[in-house]
Amino acid sequence: MTGVPSDPLLRETALCDFVAQEAALLDEGQYEQWLDLFTEDGRYWVPLLGRFQEDVHSHNSIAYEDRLLLQLRIQRLRDSRAHSQHPPSRCQHVLQISRVEDVDEQAGTAVLRTPFLYIEARGEEQLMLAGSYRHLLVRTPEGLRMQQKRVDLLGAERALPAVQLFI
């Protein structure tokens, strides 16, 4: 990335603030508002091989979900009969500073990489995962939106416990 983009939405501060706000929505359980941050063709992807997986078609993934599948997951989390949510799960995202990897002002896109720790708690159990996010953000009439959120977990290929919420 060279120079400062003239579009305020594509400036580093706005991009990093978007990533922080996205994590805050998840931590606050505001899943519907989080889903609204995705474009209509947006994808949430957790590759099985972490950062070594080039694309979704070359190998299995832990998760590869479009808006419909994300919406179904949110409905399941909200369902009072969901056994996995008695007691309810809570999460906390601890983010390092996002690094802007690319901005294409003409296309209205930006790519950010953000190292993270993810903690999920339910009852007396707690799970901690680490890795990095790769957000592909696009400028839309409504503001920035995620076209893809990729979650590269450290040790993703090992047996993982069930994650109830969104990493």
Results as ranks from 00 to 15, higher is better:
Val46Met: 14
Val46Cys: 09
Leu48Phe: 12
Leu49Gln: 11
Leu49Trp: 03
Leu49Thr: 00
Arg51Ile: 10
Phe52Arg: 15
Phe52Met: 10
Phe52Gln: 14
Gln53Ser: 07
Glu54Ile: 05
Ser58Asn: 03
Ser58Pro: 00
His59Phe: 10
Asn60Glu: 10
Ser61Thr: 12
Ser61Gly: 01
Ile62Gly: 00
Ile62Lys: 05
Ala63Cys: 03
Ala63Arg: 10
Tyr64His: 12
Glu65Tyr: 02
Glu65Asn: 04
Asp66Gly: 14
Arg67Val: 06
Arg67Ile: 02
Leu68Ala: 11
Leu69His: 03
Leu69Ala: 13
Leu70Pro: 01
Gln71Ser: 15
Gln71Met: 07
Gln71Lys: 13
Arg73His: 04
Gln75Thr: 01
Gln75Ser: 07
Asp79Arg: 03
His83Leu: 13
Gln85Pro: 00
Gln85Tyr: 08
Gln85Val: 00
His86Thr: 10
Pro87Lys: 02
Arg90His: 12
Leu95Pro: 07
Leu95Trp: 09
Ile97Trp: 05
Ile97Ala: 15
Arg99Glu: 15
Arg99Val: 14
Val100Ala: 10
Glu101Arg: 13
Asp102Glu: 15
Gln106Ala: 14
Ala107Met: 09
Thr109His: 08
Thr109Ala: 06
Ala110Trp: 09
Leu112Lys: 05
Thr114Ser: 11
Pro115Phe: 12
Pro115Asn: 11
Leu117Cys: 08
Ile119Ser: 08
Ile119Thr: 12
Glu120Met: 01
Gln126Arg: 14
Gln126Trp: 01
Leu127Ser: 04
Leu129Arg: 13
Ala130Arg: 14
Gly131Asp: 10
Gly131Ala: 11
Gly131Arg: 10
Ser132Glu: 14
Tyr133Val: 06
Tyr133Arg: 08
Arg134Glu: 15
Arg134Lys: 13
His135Cys: 08
His135Arg: 04
His135Gly: 01
His135Phe: 15
Leu137Ser: 08
Leu137Thr: 06
Pro141Ala: 05
Pro141Met: 03
Gly143Asn: 04
Gly143Ala: 04
Gly143Glu: 07
Leu144Asp: 08
Arg145Ala: 11
Gln147His: 12
Gln147Asn: 09
Gln148Ser: 11
Gln148Ala: 12
Gln148Arg: 15
Arg150Lys: 12
Arg150Ser: 03
Asp152Val: 06
Leu153Met: 04
Ala156Lys: 09
Leu160Tyr: 05
Leu160Cys: 05
Pro161Tyr: 02
Ala162Val: 13
Val163Pro: 02
